Amino acid sequence: MRIATILGLTTALCASAGTTYNVVQEYAGPTFFDGWDFYGNFDNLTNGDAIFVSSSEATSQRLAYVDPSTNHAIIKVDNTSRVAFNEKRNTVRITSQDRFAIGSVWVADMLHVPYGCSVWPAFWSQAPAWPEGGEIDTFEGVNQVTRNQMALHTNPGCSLRQDPTSLTQTSSIINSTNCDSAANENSGCVVTDPSLQSYGEVFAKGGGGVFVTEFAEEGISVWFFPRDLVPQSLSSNTTSLDTSKLGKPTANWPSGPGGCDINTFFQPQNLIFDITLCGDFAGAPNVFSQTCSGKCYNDYVIGDPSTYDNAYFDVASVRVYGEVGKQVVLQKGQSGNSGIGIRVSGLGVLVSSLVIGGMMVMI
């Protein structure tokens, strides 16, 4: 989740090859928050005017909870408290305890996403030692923008390769092609969804939709399906997923020469939901003034708390799928080269391997 500048260049992207994946993890229902860690600190990452509360604070303040009437997870900004000048507003950032390796797909079914002046929400992923290991932004926006943007952020050497000759190309708005986090104020290689249903009020009024992120050796792809176009293959009881049946991706970063070698620039990813306020992106004067008036902090963060009535995620589920035969789940505390891993079989998930001294022993 980083700064991006919209350039508005439309072009074509090639889709990644389809692969069949089986479910390995699900975050849903009453236990949704069991698999996540709360940040529990002020936003010292993107200079937001926000405090990411602890798990206990999120529960007591009703900023992260499962709605008993829908069984959906709600993740929100405090919309009831008056905040004093020079203080920050409470909100939430959660990170999955497990990490997911190349050969994974994550599917997020959302009914509502945060929006409004000063609001900067994202659903994304990163490796622990950012930018080493890369970052994948599936959903991100600021203030009153009307379209979702997707991006990669990496070490130098990764780019979005455009392939207009591909037979599986799709059209999206290409904002920037250099994924290097040290270049262009860390804008990353950004793609904007042309659909007005992908963000904000229109997203909510349409019943939300489903975001799919494929993290594959052939490349990284993101699909978005508004509620009325969600395919049956993404239904809540689906235990396997064939990405070749999803159609053309909304955004695609193919691996290979001239693009981004996924094995070189990416490592297993933690999933993240967060909502910060103002900060490096939403609060940048040239960005804020595009869709909002006044001053980001003075008029919103410490202003009328009801301005944050729409600053919440309503998440039906997040499901993670893994490629058959690959160890795709790194459990909390696992370094990535030692410990117990999870391998995906043709029938489901198996606790499969113990790595000792660099040698994998199947169990």
Rank of each mutant, 00 (worst) to 15 (best):
S60C: 14
S172V: 04
Q149H: 15
V301G: 04
I340K: 14
Y21C: 02
A108F: 00
L13R: 13
V287M: 06
C158Q: 14
A64D: 12
G294E: 11
D193V: 00
I220K: 04
D261K: 14
A282L: 04
A58R: 11
N175L: 05
I75Q: 03
S172K: 06
Q331C: 12
C179P: 06
N263P: 07
Q149M: 12
G294F: 07
F38D: 02
T46P: 03
G188N: 05
I302H: 02
Q331W: 04
N175T: 06
I51V: 15
F32M: 05
G188W: 10
G40H: 09
V105C: 08
T70L: 03
G294V: 14
A12F: 12
I272L: 08
P231H: 12
G206D: 01
A12N: 08
I342M: 13
T10R: 15
V328Q: 08
D314F: 11
N155G: 10
Q290H: 13
S187E: 02
G103A: 14
S195W: 00
F224V: 03
S16N: 11
N47I: 07
G336I: 04
G303F: 03
V315S: 02
L347Q: 11
S125I: 06
G346K: 13
S118A: 15
I356R: 11
W36P: 00
I3S: 14
A50N: 06
V23N: 13
L354V: 10
A84N: 02
G29S: 08
A12R: 14
V349P: 03
S255M: 01
V24R: 09
W106E: 05
I342S: 11
I356Q: 01
A122I: 00
M362L: 15
T264S: 13
Y21E: 00
A251C: 15
Q269W: 03
A316V: 15
N41P: 04
Y308G: 13
I340G: 11
T91M: 09
H72N: 14
L9I: 05
A204G: 04
Q267Y: 10
M150Y: 09
G188A: 15
S255D: 11
D180A: 07
T264I: 13
T11D: 05
A182L: 10
